[in-house]
Design a protein around this nucleic acid. Sequence first.
DNA 1: GTCTATAGTCCGATAGAC
DNA 2: GTCTATCGGACTATAGAC
Lengths: 194, 194
Amino acid sequence: MLAGMPRWESDAQGRLERAALELFEKQGFERTSVAQIARTAGLTERSFYRYFPDKREVLFAGNDLEAHLVAQVEAADPGLTPIEALLTALGTADEVFHSREFLLRRVKVIAASPALAERDLIKLADIADALARALERRGVEPGKARFIIDVAIAISRRATSRWLADPDATFSELVAQATAELRVAVASPAPTVR
Amino acid sequence: MLAGMPRWESDAQGRLERAALELFEKQGFERTSVAQIARTAGLTERSFYRYFPDKREVLFAGNDLEAHLVAQVEAADPGLTPIEALLTALGTADEVFHSREFLLRRVKVIAASPALAERDLIKLADIADALARALERRGVEPGKARFIIDVAIAISRRATSRWLADPDATFSELVAQATAELRVAVASPAPTVR
DNA sequence: GTCTATAGTCCGATAGAC
DNA sequence: GTCTATCGGACTATAGAC
């Protein structure tokens, strides 16, 4: 990788990702063509598809968060309840976060495009699926695993949105805070069954 | 339907929706073209796009559930907490459900296609957005509204998955049951903050 | 209803690294 | 020679513009 002058500019994938993010910021996702991204990165349209199966994926490469969370759940003390294991794992998610500034740019671009918002949601669903399988390996019944994960994701979204806005709080504190908030909210009596 | 020969077969949109569902079941979403759906429904490709902005939308027409839930939240007793209002509204969701058999066919087709799964998720997110605005009108702070809704959606998914499998239980009972399950799950001590 | 840009696939060609 | 990264052309279907 480092020996000698490479025939091609290195890190083609990274160049495509950076070009795409900037073009999407400037012009929006819909009005940016794959050919333009590739050209900006010094490649052809066809080469783009060697790295990404479709145009949206250029913003979603890498499984770092999913791999991290699954590993954390698998490493969790077997004595923990499912929700404890998940929340403890989630509390360490910031270990694989990028800079706040980068995440904010990315969030903004995604929010501006329905097509990207869709892809973002299914990526989250993929993480949920992976976590469900991890919980099932701990002996949790599948339907219940999925439910607990949906709740944990709700907590994590609450924590993440605060983390992006508040430079001081630590992520795991915010997770604990959201969990406390949830406990208060559901402590009230159940709705009446008619 | 009986009075005179109509210029067009009536219910073009319904015919497109039924044709699409059957073709997707038979061949899969990706291997069914818009032209084929239109032809099967006795229309041209161009006419398809008069009814649906894109190919996926043919399975997602109608806002019945969203409209119903928002109306229920708006009609809820102002004295209820946000989560009580939401869960009471959710408990009546089965009023706008189609038959189990139809829902199961639809769920199967959606699950078989990543493109449709994406669209399904963003439709759910749209409902969440509408409910967030409804809660904000009740005076709930936006970030908290979103959090409570994510939790309510988790409860609703748990209830829906059981409802699809169990012909006897009523939906509102299943919502109450899932809520109780959540209370038990989060009653445990918080994860340690490291 | 017609025309067109673009997304995305499939075939292969080329050229350097090893 | 093999392997890998790039490029080129032809093609279909989606979706939007006119």
